[in-house]
Design a protein around this nucleic acid. Structure first.
Lengths: 139, 139
DNA sequence: GTAAGCCTTGACGCCTACGTCAAGGTCAAG
DNA sequence: CTTGACCTTGACGTAGGCGTCAAGGCTTAC
């Protein structure tokens, strides 16, 4: 199939597909007239990329997953490199969560001191429903 | 004082100060030779801006606070416009927290299915320590 | 006079995943 | 032959808060 069909089936723009190729994530055969030619496996690769992007991965993060799929694995996450990316991402997300929670608390505190009573309308940052993620790196 | 001294005392770069001016946050008198001249109040304004930026506010968000200070209030948060920004920011932070938590859960789930056992090393997204912030907008 | 240290206004670079023209080639239908 | 739908590469624009030259003027000290 050509780029337009792949784009429709994968739910992305043709621009995105060319960008993924430019970034080294996917490659396309070329037909005689220079048009890119894709197959079903490429559709899987793009689906994997999209899936990862929507959960906050960068294209760089996605590379090991795509490589894993292309090397014959049925899942892009079946390779150790991919698992490592998963773990790094979890750690990064936890960092961001901690940062956000700290900022939330700070903003709530400033709001409370500037406008006593306003803070009553929003959940407290230290409430039992909002806590920092537990630290628990590998091993 | 001139821009260099203000920068040192406020702990920011001269580039940042010019940028704040360009964005309409601070204004400077000019001495005969064209140099910017600042006073102690400008120092307070810059301190306010820095304080807000570090908790994730944009310069646009900071404008009401600066305006509030300049209009004579002792706190940049004493004006209703500032309080409104606080509330919008809290809501935005809560949105980001929910998004992050959802992504965390998604990543953890994918990791778990791709590498059973790996997930045991990281905190579970649905654990009692990590929950979505309670919704509770105004009123 | 000249070096040093301060100041000025531009203006590009960064980072990410594309959106959006621009200018033009390919191919099948009518 | 023309229209139209498809394809190609190239290149600028976006958002935010500056960093980092570039090229040059002011002032004081020696």
């Amino acid at each position: 199939m050509r780029i337009g069909e792949l784009a429709r089936r994968a739910g992305v723009s043709t621009r995105a597909l060319r960008y993924y190729e430019q970034q080294g994530l996917i490659t396309a055969r070329r037909s005689a007239n220079g048009y890119r030619e894709y197959d079903e496996e490429d559709l899987r690769l793009v689906a994997e990329i999209r899936s990862l992007l929507t959960v906050g991965f960068t294209l760089e993060d996605a590379k090991p997953f795509v490589a894993c799929l292309r090397s014959g694995h049925e899942s892009g996450a079946s390779c150790p490199e991919s698992v490592e990316v998963y773990r790094r991402k979890l750690a990064q997300i936890d960092d961001e969560l901690r940062t956000l929670l700290a900022r939330r608390a700070e903003v709530a505190a400033q709001l409370a001191s500037a406008c006593p009573g306003c803070a009553l309308r929003v959940p407290a940052a230290g409430s039992p429903a909002i806590e920092s993620p537990r630290e628990q790196e590998d091993q």
